[in-house]
Amino acid sequence: MANEKPIIKLENLTYFYPNSKTPAIENINLAIYEREFVTITGPSGGGKSTLCRIFNGIIPHFYGGKLEGRAIVNGIDVKSSSVSELSRVVGLVFQNPVNQIVNLTVEEEIAFGLENLMFPSHVIEERISWVLEILNIKHLRNRLTYTLSGGELQKVALASILALKPKVLVLDEVTANMDPYSAREFLKLLRDIWHEIEITIILVEHRLSEVLQYANRLILLNKIIIADGLPREILKSDLLEKMGIEVPPVTLFSKKLGVKPLPLNVKEAIRVFREWLPRK
């Protein structure tokens, strides 16, 4: 899955918000390869949202501030590029869907980005149909956006980004306002999309219970990169607990008992315990 050249490469990256003397992120070195499914987590204020916005250039171009070091996305230097150019490669979905949606109808919203980039009508039609299909929201096509539920809105926001066919999809705490059931459904949908199309997914979350089973790489960020590797390996340590990040209860429980291999969710825990118990 990993190609030779990373699609995102950050070298010694440090960023200061305007009028800030302390950096939001410091000396970040990170390489993300195509088709990875990466989860970034960390405490509040640790720079997760900052990093998301660097991926598509909103930082520094929309926010200003000082960006030191190098950030290369799909071969383009973030500092000398534009949000528009980077947004064609990196699609960013924000936490609150209500504030991302501009148009009155779902169809208009999905067409929005493509219209801004001067795509012709027939291509827009193809993209709309395609994205409604893969997200299973064909029935929402002509709905007025202010009548949609939170979960539906988030899917529409995702649809309007996917319609641009970015190579990388970045989701900044998108399940924060969802109830757990809807969050689970949404994450399953993301996993399905990841399998179906050739896309790299970067998921920023701090509710890990549902997310850990999907990512093959976990990055701990608290202004600097604390850890970067396989979720199971990182959970074996107590880094997450020390940083005050919520660890799935079954994982915590298993750690206390010394159960191996360390389960990340209930299904795995049941399997592991079934083998472990008789031995005890």
Binding site: F112, N116, L117
Partner: peptide, 25 residues
Amino acid sequence: FKARDLAEAMEARSFGALPQRTFFK
């Protein structure tokens, strides 16, 4: 807050990047 979030989201879909745009319908 809505205005700021919205501006970010529009920027991230190239609003205003080109002098003209096409219209789906």
